[in-house]
Computed example of a mutant assay.
Amino acid sequence: MIRSVYISGADLAAQLAAQRMIGTGEAGLRGPETCESWTEVPPGAVVVGSLAQDSDCDAAPCRDGVTKVVIVPNHAQGLKAVSRGADHYIVAADVDSPVPETIALQIRRADRARSSGFGNGVVEEENCVDASAFRWLIAYTGSVVHRHGQIGYMILLRVEPDSPIPSEALAEAICLRLCKTLRAADIVTWLGRNWFGTLVATGLTLEGAQVLASRLRESCGQPIEYEGRPVAVRCNIGMTTFGGSEIDPDLILDRAASAVDQSTWSNFSDSMQEVP
């Protein structure tokens, strides 16, 4: 799938970010083309714009199938933009860094997953996929980050309820929490029973990935509401990096599972607070 990138002609930051995203065309993007309003671009387009330049970035919804990339002054504004419908954000200081290229590869990765006939994940979220798609994305992302000298992160979680609940109920609750905690470009899956995986997009330092893992542990350790009652849960979590010449999904998953086995469980009592 070839996508066209649209920008406002007067938005210099967007022009620079779009040019970096398009690069040599490896990510399947072409352009950039100019537009008067984001609401007028065709389905399948990628639109890039700055909050300071284009009011569409902050308010107007795009057509279905349009990917929205917003340039913001800081991460706080980026999170707000995502909550209002943006798919990705770029901090203004990073428009001439590898960040736009990383986002372009993330868009390509998601397109390839959707076009490969994989089933959906257990919840209706764009970044939640089934286990087969997850393994395919590990291999694809590993190949990409290896060619670009980057690092990817695999985070696994094992979640155990205090009292028995159906696996499907546990899977739905935890996958929803993972999707809400992670960035829009990161991938979530249920691997079966009480195992969950997250594929974290590049663009994070190791320290940033560790902070994200802590947030996931805190979110998934909160009680789950099942049949009108709170069920305490505990979890442990493990992370591994990838991006070298080895891109076998099972080996990467095995490394992350070993990290889970070496981590400590959270306590049931720590999670008995108000059910989110």
Results as ranks from 00 to 15, higher is better:
201 A>V: 06
182 L>Q: 07
98 P>D: 07
100 P>W: 08
253 L>C: 01
153 Y>M: 04
171 A>L: 00
266 S>E: 11
158 R>M: 09
112 R>A: 05
24 T>C: 09
167 S>K: 03
230 P>Q: 10
43 P>W: 06
259 A>T: 10
185 A>F: 06
78 G>M: 01
109 R>V: 10
101 E>D: 12
8 S>G: 05
52 A>Y: 00
191 L>K: 12
96 D>C: 10
267 N>Y: 06
103 I>Y: 01
150 Q>N: 03
69 V>N: 02
132 S>N: 04
75 H>S: 03
67 T>P: 03
133 A>W: 01
56 D>I: 08
72 V>S: 02
129 V>E: 08
34 T>F: 11
89 Y>S: 00
42 P>W: 04
126 E>T: 15
82 V>H: 04
106 Q>H: 09
199 L>K: 11
104 A>K: 02
9 G>P: 00
219 S>T: 02
69 V>C: 05
13 A>C: 08
65 G>R: 05
117 G>N: 13
214 S>W: 02
168 E>V: 10
146 H>I: 01
78 G>T: 00
62 C>T: 13
170 L>G: 08
124 E>I: 01
201 A>L: 15
78 G>H: 02
227 E>R: 14
177 R>Q: 14
155 I>A: 03
264 T>Q: 01
20 R>C: 12
192 G>E: 11
173 A>S: 03
159 V>N: 02
171 A>Y: 00
97 S>K: 06
250 D>P: 02
12 L>T: 15
200 V>E: 15
65 G>F: 01
263 S>F: 06
36 E>L: 13
78 G>F: 01
32 P>I: 10
141 T>S: 14
65 G>S: 13
84 R>N: 00
237 I>Q: 07
59 A>E: 13
127 N>P: 09
30 R>M: 04
198 T>Y: 15
251 L>R: 10
122 V>N: 09
98 P>C: 12
8 S>M: 07
176 L>C: 05
224 I>G: 08
182 L>A: 04
60 A>D: 03
149 G>W: 08
23 G>Y: 06
121 G>C: 12
139 A>L: 02
218 E>M: 13
154 M>A: 02
207 E>T: 11
241 T>F: 08
143 S>H: 14
260 V>S: 07
138 I>K: 01
61 P>G: 00
263 S>N: 07
12 L>I: 14
155 I>Y: 04
227 E>G: 04
55 S>F: 05
148 H>V: 12
26 E>W: 03
29 L>H: 12
252 I>Y: 07
189 T>E: 06
14 A>W: 10
169 A>L: 05
86 A>E: 00
120 N>A: 14
12 L>G: 11
10 A>E: 07
136 W>Q: 04
22 I>A: 09
17 A>C: 09
245 S>R: 11
162 D>N: 04
86 A>D: 03
16 L>V: 09
191 L>W: 13
176 L>N: 05
52 A>L: 05
235 C>L: 15
22 I>W: 04
199 L>R: 07
122 V>C: 15
241 T>C: 12
224 I>A: 08
139 A>C: 11
10 A>N: 12
18 A>W: 09
95 V>W: 00
164 P>K: 10
79 L>D: 04
196 F>W: 12
112 R>M: 14
60 A>E: 11
216 L>M: 13
166 P>D: 05
72 V>C: 03
198 T>P: 14
37 S>V: 03
182 L>P: 07
267 N>F: 07
229 R>T: 15
177 R>V: 10
125 E>T: 11
162 D>G: 01
106 Q>L: 13
230 P>V: 09
246 E>M: 09
3 R>N: 06
45 A>W: 08
